[in-house]
Write a protein that binds this DNA or RNA. Structure first.
Lengths: 188, 188
DNA sequence: TGGCAATTTCAGAAATTTCTGAAAAGACTA
DNA sequence: TAGTCTTTTCAGAAATTTCTGAAATTGCCA
C-alpha cells in the first residue's frame, strides 16, 4: 500500500467499516482513497495506492458507480477514466441515505404492505400481522419524515440539526403564540 | 421451515435484509421469528421454526444479546432460556441506533480525531486532513443531534417526525420574529 | 482495416464466513 | 455424588464472498 501513514490509517479503517455495512473491504478502501485525494484518480493510480489487482479495482469502481458514490470524469487528451467523490460532503450523505433507502427500506415496505393485505386464519398469524403493522407504521413515519427532510437546502438542514431538541422549545413558543394570539394560527 | 406462509415470507425477507447489514442471515431470521412471536421462545422452538442446527441458534442468540436486541426470560419450573424482542417497537429502534452508533460512528470519530491531531508534511496530507476534518464535523453534528433526540420521550419524537418540514415554517416564523422584534430573541 | 490503450468479464483460487455435529461445560435434582 | 437437561464451544465441512490473472471487449486513432 503506497500511501502516507495518515491516509493509510484512514483507508484501512474505512475498509473495515465498509465491511460492517454491506460494502466489501476493497470497495471501502477505494472510496476512502478517492475521498481524500486532491484530484480525480484513474484506476491504475488506485491500484498503485492500494496494492490490489487491476480487475478488483475495476469491479469496485463499478459498484461505487452503481451506488452513485463516485463521479466519472475525463481529461482532455487522456482517454482513461478518472474518478472522484463529490466535493460537498452533504451531497455524499444525501446519496448514501437515498441509496440505502432504495435498497433496504423500500423493498421492506413493499413486502410489509403485501403481507398486511393478506387474509389470515390463525391467532398466531393475526398476532404476527399486528406486529408487522407496527413495523410498517414505523417505516412509513420515517420515510415520510425523510421525504420532507431531503427537500431542505443544506444550510436549513444544518440549522435544524444544530438546534436539536431546542426545536421543541421553538414549537412550544409557537404553541403559546398560537393559543394566545389566535391570529398566528394561520401560520400553521 | 415450520412457519405459516405469512410469517415465512417475512422471516426470509428479514434474513436477506440482515445480510445487507452486518448481521448474517440466520441471525436476521431468528430475530424475525422472535419479533412476530406471540410469546417468548426457547432455542428449540426457534430450531423447529427455522430448521437450522441447535448450535447455530445458540450462536445467533448470543449475537442478538450482544446487540441488546433480545431479552432473556425464564418461566417458573422450566429451566430453559426464553427469548423475546421488546414489545415497544420504538425501544427496538432506540437500541438499534444506539448500538450501531457505538460500533460504527464512535470508533470512526476516535480515529478521525487522532488523525486530525497529527502534524503533517506534504500537500497531499494537508488536503487529506482537511477532508477528514469535513467528515469529522459532519459526524459531530449528527452525533450531537442524536444525543439530543435520544433524550426525547417517544411521543415527542413522533410529534417532531410527523411535523417534518413544517418545523421549517415555524423556524421561519421564529426568524422573522427574531429579526424584527428583538424581544423574541430571548426565547432562543 | 489493424494496432494500441483502456476497461470489463469471468473462471477458478484464495480467503472468509457460516453452519454443523459432537463433545464439553453448567446447573439443577435426587 | 450421579444423572439429566440445557447451553456453549469448537474443529472441521460447507457455503459464500472476494480476489486475481488471463482473455475478451470496447473504443479510439492512423
Amino acid at each position: 500500500m503506497q500511501l502516507p501513514p495518515l491516509v493509510q490509517t484512514f483507508v484501512l479503517h474505512f475498509g473495515e467499516m465498509g465491511s460492517r455495512w454491506g460494502i466489501n473491504r476493497t470497495v471501502g478502501q477505494i472510496y476512502a482513497v478517492l475521498f481524500v485525494a486532491e484530484r480525480p484518480l484513474n484506476a491504475d493510480e488506485i491500484v498503485e495506492r492500494l496494492g490490489v489487482s487491476r480487475s478488483n479495482v475495476s469491479m469496485g469502481l463499478k459498484e461505487l458507480q452503481a451506488w452513485n458514490l463516485v463521479r466519472l470524469q475525463h481529461r482532455p487528451g487522456d482517454r482513461r477514466d478518472y474518478f472522484a467523490t463529490p466535493e460537498d460532503v452533504w451531497q455524499i450523505v444525501r446519496t448514501l441515505v437515498e441509496e440505502r433507502k432504495k435498497r433496504e427500506i423500500d423493498p421492506t415496505l413493499t413486502i410489509l404492505r403485501e403481507l398486511l393485505m393478506q387474509r389470515v386464519e390463525t391467532d398466531a398469524e393475526r398476532h404476527a400481522q399486528a406486529r408487522l403493522g407496527e413495523m410498517h407504521d414505523l417505516f412509513e413515519l420515517f420515510t415520510g419524515w425523510y421525504d420532507d427532510m431531503r427537500r431542505l437546502e443544506t444550510d436549513r438542514l444544518v440549522q435544524l440539526l444544530t438546534l436539536g431538541t431546542k426545536v421543541q422549545k421553538v414549537l412550544e413558543m409557537k404553541d403559546r403564540l398560537t393559543r394566545r394570539g389566535g391570529r398566528a394560527d394561520k401560520g400553521d
